[in-house]
Simulated assay, not measured.
Amino acid sequence: MSGILIDPGKCIACRACEVACEREHGRSFITVFEFESSAVPLNCRHCEKAPCIEACPTGALFRDKDGAVMVDVKKCIGCEVCLLACPFGIPEIAGKVMVKCDLCPERRAEGKLPLCVQTCPTGALSYVEPNDFSAGRRKAYAERLALRRSENAPGL
């Protein structure tokens, strides 16, 4: 399942992702937290083994065909059990129902990226399969090691 991966090292705290999400959904489901020397955007991780889905007593939380964790607002009773179950504290209660990132299903259906990802000017947010991301990281690490080795090699 694809998801939004976050590279905090690239985040410049411009909050373009928050503004884009609010423009698309009427509220922002991504929050940029700022610390002394860095910023971290945070949104629903759409966990593979989503504790919120497991904890929901009414079955209001489910996965769509692409694997995104979604909310059926007709079944949600606002009990906040999902909020307690989430290891990241992401779900929020608004109007007596749980709300959270849905990975922009209308945009995904059109083959587009979630708007926060498309809007991020630094590439701190990316929409990829975790295995593809991991493969890219391994390759980048190998390239850095190879460069370091060539820089330290004795001259010919």
Results as ranks from 00 to 15, higher is better:
A39D: 12
V99W: 03
C56F: 00
S37D: 14
A13L: 04
C79E: 07
G123E: 04
A142I: 13
A50R: 07
F62M: 01
Q118K: 13
G3Y: 11
C82W: 00
S37M: 05
R63G: 01
S126D: 07
C104Y: 03
P121K: 00
K139M: 15
C14V: 12
A20H: 14
A142S: 15
C116V: 04
E92P: 05
V69W: 09
E18V: 05
L156A: 14
L147G: 14
K10I: 02
E54K: 11
F29V: 15
D132A: 15
P91S: 00
R45S: 11
A135Y: 05
L103C: 05
L113N: 06
G67K: 13
E143G: 01
G123V: 00
R138W: 12
A140T: 02
C120Y: 03
V40D: 06
E34M: 06
P87Y: 04
P8E: 06
A39Y: 06
I4T: 07
C52N: 07
R144W: 08
G123C: 02
G111D: 08
C44T: 02
V73K: 14
V81A: 10
A68W: 08
A94H: 11
L156P: 13
V128C: 08
S38Y: 13
K10S: 01
E92V: 11
E34Q: 14
L83S: 09
G95M: 07
R27N: 11
C120Q: 04
A20I: 10
I30H: 10
K96Y: 11
C11R: 02
V40W: 08
P91V: 00
R23T: 15
G89T: 06
A94K: 09
G59W: 05
N43F: 04
L113Y: 04
E54Q: 12
G67C: 11
H25G: 10
G155F: 15
C79Y: 06
C44Q: 04
P41G: 05
L147A: 15
D102K: 01
C104D: 07
F33A: 12
K96W: 10
V40R: 09
N43L: 11
C76W: 00
R27T: 15
G26M: 10
P41L: 03
P41Q: 04
I77T: 09
R138H: 12
E54H: 03
L5W: 09
V40M: 08
G26T: 14
L42A: 12
F133V: 02
I4F: 03
I77M: 13
G89S: 01
P114W: 09
P8N: 04
D102R: 02
C17V: 09
F29N: 14
T122A: 02
D72L: 06
T119L: 07
N152E: 15
R148T: 14
L103A: 10
A109R: 12
E48M: 10
S37K: 10
C21W: 09
P105A: 05
V97R: 07
R63W: 08
L5E: 04
A140Q: 10
A146K: 15
D72A: 07
